[in-house]
């Protein structure tokens, strides 16, 4: 399901226009981006947790030519599924 279809579905269920819903969705993704950029995690009940994880810089060795490289630090977004959704998915 693509973004457009999702917005249409939610708008239909809420009885609101797609513009309103897409605006709300944009606001939500903005919040996720800014707060997760500050390394805050966002928990959504019965769905999961968006959790940014900071990875430190590290030295890797290219096995092909033996060159060592310094990989810069980075923040990785992880999503931890809630147990409710997990059990639902299993069945």
């Amino acid at each position: 399901m693509e973004n457009k279809k999702l917005v249409a579905l939610v708008a239909d269920k809420l009885g609101r226009s797609t513009e309103d819903v897409s605006k709300l969705l944009d606001a939500f993704t903005d919040v996720v981006a800014t707060r997760c950029g500050e390394l805050d995690s966002i928990a959504i009940p019965s769905f999961g947790t968006f959790e940014p994880k900071k990875k430190n810089e590290r030295v890797v060795v290219n096995p092909g030519n033996g060159k060592r490289m310094l990989v810069p630090p980075k923040v990785v977004m992880t999503f931890k599924i809630s147990n409710v959704l997990k059990s639902k998915l299993k069945g």
């Binding site: 993704t29 996720v32 810089e57 490289m69 990989v71 999503f79 997990k86």
Partner: peptide, 27 residues
């Protein structure tokens, strides 16, 4: 079944903004 989440490019970039000027360096 398991759920896999792949962050969008724009989100990954937004999160990594503080480190965007870094690059992998050959030592």
């Amino acid at each position: 079944n398991r759920l896999v989440f792949t962050p969008a490019k724009s989100l990954a970039d937004a999160l990594n903004e503080p480190f965007s000027h870094f690059d992998t360096v050959v030592l």
